[in-house]
């Protein structure tokens, strides 16, 4: 017998309405109505493109030292001034964005991947699997992250890869809890029973039936997470335990700027890298909150 496609059973008019109102379209529409979220999104686009195309946008080599031009104030030549080695702060800020964003995105992607797998297993299987995995989450969460971060980074030697590994090692727990909670809810849905009754494998149910329904909160958590990692990484680099000079990162630029003599002679030097961190984290937070509101069915039409 010839297979009849499912949509053949759905009335033409209904189908049209549905496709006009897909989840993605509704979300985008509602996201665009949130001014702060759109501003945050545009700011992120500028920062990301600025860091990707930094070599074409800035006129100075971020590593080029010029001892004749140490600690110059902002000018048409050096928009953000120069640092203690006469390097151009504007170009260092843009090259620093590459490192900060790379660490942020890589750590969050890794953390989301690990956290989703563990949370999915805990939520799907429940029982002792859930119990063991959640006790692991409790254990990782028990350490204030900065102590564990610093300790592991000192054991592993600070390098970009190691820093990302440590952030993944400590960052998966939030996603794991979130995904577990979503999966516990979704597990009770009828379509999961239906999928089980036709003999679908557990992996297939988890990947294709449960995960798509839990993806919204995961995306929101990831967006907010990038801001958090950027803050933590810059703090670590500020202490001299993160990205090592001469590679510029927002955190280690501030480390160079913290001496009292520089604060007296060149107050613009600590100002700009910190401002970039603030704007970037704020932008990720706005976009994350905007996405959350846009995907929340309870807030329908009230925003």
């Amino acid at each position: 017998m010839e297979k009849i496609p499912f949509h053949a059973f759905v009335h033409e008019s209904t189908r049209k309405d549905r496709s006009d109102q897909s989840f993605l379209k509704i979300t985008i529409k509602r996201f665009c109505m949130n001014k702060l979220a759109v501003i945050g999104f545009l700011a992120l686009v500028v920062i990301i493109f600025g860091s990707l195309f930094a070599p074409f946008l800035v006129s100075h080599n971020p590593a080029a030292q010029n001892l004749m031009e140490r600690l110059q104030p902002p000018s048409s030549m050096h928009w953000f001034g120069t640092d203690e080695y006469g390097r151009d702060i504007f170009s260092r800020v843009f090259y620093g964005a590459r490192v900060s964003l790379l660490v942020g995105f890589a750590s969050v992607l890794g953390g989301i991947f690990v956290g989703t797998m563990i949370g999915a297993m805990a939520g799907f299987y429940g029982g002792w699997v859930d119990n063991i995995l959640m006790r692991m989450v409790d254990l990782v969460n028990a350490f204030p992250s900065i102590f564990l971060l610093i300790t592991i980074v000192t054991l592993l030697e600070p390098s970009l890869t190691n820093i990302v590994i440590v952030f993944i090692l400590l960052g998966w727990t939030g996603t794991a809890r979130l995904v577990r909670g979503e999966f516990l809810k979704i597990r009770q849905e009828e379509y999961i029973w239906a999928a089980k009754s036709i003999g679908m494998s557990n992996l297939r149910i988890m990947l294709f039936h449960m995960l798509p329904n839990a993806i919204g909160p995961i995306i929101v958590a990831a967006t907010l997470g990038v801001g958090g990692v950027i803050l933590a990484e810059s703090g670590l680099s500020f202490l001299g335990l993160g990205i090592q000079p001469p590679t510029p990162s927002w955190g280690n630029m501030l480390q160079g700027a913290q001496s009292l003599s520089i604060m007296v002679m060149a107050p613009w030097y600590p100002f700009f890298p910190g401002l970039m961190i603030l704007i970037t984290v704020l932008a990720f937070n706005f976009v994350g909150d905007g996405l959350r509101d846009a995907m929340d069915p309870k807030l329908d039409g009230r925003r």
Binding site: S234, G235, F238, L254, A257, M263, P270, I277, L278, N285
Partner: peptide
């Protein structure tokens, strides 16, 4: 969104 070390420096 403000990094505390930057706030401290300011």
């Amino acid at each position: 969104a403000t990094p505390n070390f930057w706030l401290g420096l300011l």
